[in-house]
Design a protein around this nucleic acid. Structure first.
Lengths: 350, 350
DNA sequence: CCCCTCCTTGACAACGTTGTCGTTGAGAGC
DNA sequence: GCTCTCAACGACAACGTTGTCAAGGAGGGG
């Protein structure tokens, strides 16, 4: 491990001052063509690479943002991250990522670390609990939330029409004539889930259907737990006719359980999910879902963050992106597979 | 945006020198209990947070590593990243991530940026092309490759038994009596794919089956392209009896095409894939695959990297992790769904 | 010929830390 | 009472950059 050359070594090699080298590196004007050539030659010869740390310390800008999500393994979040990353890349920014696992303490810790690392901004999927701890921070560094609003704290959020999407999908279910609908959620304390539940509930209320508590299952945070809760639904005296799975993990558990019980979808029980993903298009019957623009969610959050970074006076309001009900077979509709339903792949590719 | 307090402000507030504050922050000895208390009080009062940039510049250590993968959206890679991230978190390291999209130029650019940001180490899934450009770098900073070895360059790699896995899976297919096997690949220039193809081929050779060129399709880099190539296979006069999909994206395209042609799996055509993922367990019939320990891949790569970071003399050899052939229904076996096939979720949770 | 301008260049300090080394003072040992 | 040791603390430089300011020289206009 030999010593990395610094601007000083380059200056010496080229026989100029530190500042002149600095000017060449930053393509500042005020350097003659001749000198510039000599400096560039020295840079080349020594294999000099600027030290971004020193630059950032001096310039108070790291060209790095921090992203705290709950779990990168979840396709929904990885797609959001991808949206953020692409936008960041286009602006010469790098991205630090962290998985909070829905744990407030982990979120806090990561935020602290990223702030100490002087990130220029932070995009957060807030974990359950209170984001009040961010209050002081918010005046120091631009923050943007994605997917869910923070709690006990107000800041710009980029999210989707959870309530509306759930409402429309539930109405659709009701139009199929189902009356005993179950709602299976990862965590009803999450704002997104609450909104979805509100939409679900509103649709039921409108047609005067009473929702029985045993038809609502909470705490299905993993595929496996969703799977178990689904089984619980089927040992009830009155089994559900349709299941509304509140996210992409839940729906996978639901499918697994139904498969195991040898029930037919949608004849024995209909299933719909919130959030589209490749699998939804490959199972049989294909899954009817509310498709969320995950990539756009990340991209918009990044756009918002960068506008706040470049111009701190930008307040940054809540952005709500539209969702789309994608009817396939699992809700009871006739399933007509058609090409080009590769929505997740829709990207302004780089 | 008020000015953030520095160690200097704390020193002034507590009536001590800079160095004393520094000592308190780093819990160095040589500070009386009384002074320590005063300093801590000042830190608290001012809301002081150390600046990691200055620290890193001074200490030549950033506690940050860079990870360059091809696409975080792909569950295989996001799981690898998760493995890396968990290991990094445990050691107080942060992770910078980048998507190369299999583009060498993007990979190079990111590596350069990360190096300029003075990361303590780099984990790379090398894109197609030559990694020769890393030669100089390797003596300056620890590098570890995951999933595939680099080209024109030798460095520590953490990968799986591609050849062996493909070989075993292909043999299994042959035991079912299939003779016309097709191989569908994303990019045959990739080392992983080459190895898998070699294993596939070896199995065929052993039983004396000649592989016809039209049974090998290359260039299926997206689900959509895999879908198209699959259709191409079925307009051939002699259609394949079984399809070996070389990765998780390919297999999704294959399924989609087969579904569209209303062919039955495995009666009309068997399908197997390389890399397990949730979906494989949910489609009908369930997919027979070679399961790769993606999480462990990332974790091991990180472990190796950190051992090289802490002790630069560690050479770092190639680590090969075992794969497992998971027999389900799509290969022609009787499909006996069983609980607890949640392999992806297997994690030493935090 | 002189002054003014503009272009090129450099010295120096600063960004916020920490390592090195030196100073001070209290207490122990003789 | 004197030296010696050790704990507590501080001054200073350095990490690698860049912003500020000033200097030097060439060239143009009067």
């Amino acid at each position: 491990m030999q010593k990395t050359p610094t601007i000083r070594d380059v200056a010496q090699a080229a026989g100029v001052s530190l500042k002149t080298v600095s000017r060449v590196i930053n393509s500042d004007k005020g350097v003659s063509a001749e000198t510039r050539k000599r400096v560039l030659a020295a840079i080349e010869a020594l294999g000099y690479r600027p030290n971004a740390l020193a630059r950032s310390l001096r310039g108070r800008k790291t060209y790095t943002i921090g992203v705290v999500i709950t779990d990168i393994t979840n396709g929904f979040f990885s797609t959001i991250v991808r949206g953020i990353e692409d936008e960041a890349f286009a602006r010469n920014y790098s991205v630090l990522v962290a998985n909070s696992d829905e744990l407030l303490e982990k979120e806090k810790l990561y935020v602290r670390i990223f702030v100490e690392k002087q990130v220029d901004g932070l995009i957060i999927v807030p974990a359950t609990g209170s984001q009040e701890y961010l209050r002081d921070l918010a005046s120091h560094i631009p923050l943007v939330f994605v997917d869910r609003p923070p709690r006990d704290f107000s800041g710009p959020v980029v999210q989707v029409e959870n309530r509306e999407g759930a409402y429309r999908l539930t109405r659709h279910l009701l139009e199929h004539g189902f009356e005993r609908l179950a709602f299976l959620a990862s965590d009803l304390r999450l704002p997104t889930v609450q909104e979805r539940f509100a939409g679900f509930r509103k649709a039921l209320d409108e047609v005067g259907i009473t929702l029985h508590t045993e038809m609502v299952k909470d705490g299905a945070k993993t595929i496996h737990e969703a799977y178990r809760k689904t089984h619980e639904l089927f040992v009830l005296p009155l089994r559900p006719q349709a299941i509304f799975a509140a996210n992409n993990l839940v729906v996978q558990g639901v499918l697994k359980a139904i498969r195991e019980r040898n029930l037919r979808i949608p004849q024995d029980v209909a299933v719909v999910g919130f959030d589209d993903f490749e699998m939804a298009d490959l199972v049989q019957p294909r899954l009817t879902v509310v498709a969320q623009p995950a990539y756009a969610l990340g991209k918009e959050a990044a756009v918002l963050l960068f506008s706040r970074i470049t111009c701190p006076s930008v307040a940054g309001e809540t952005v709500v992106l539209p969702v789309e009900v994608v009817l396939r077979g699992s809700c009871g509709c006739e399933d007509v597979p058609q090409e080009k339903t590769f929505l997740k792949g829709v990207r302004n590719s780089t």
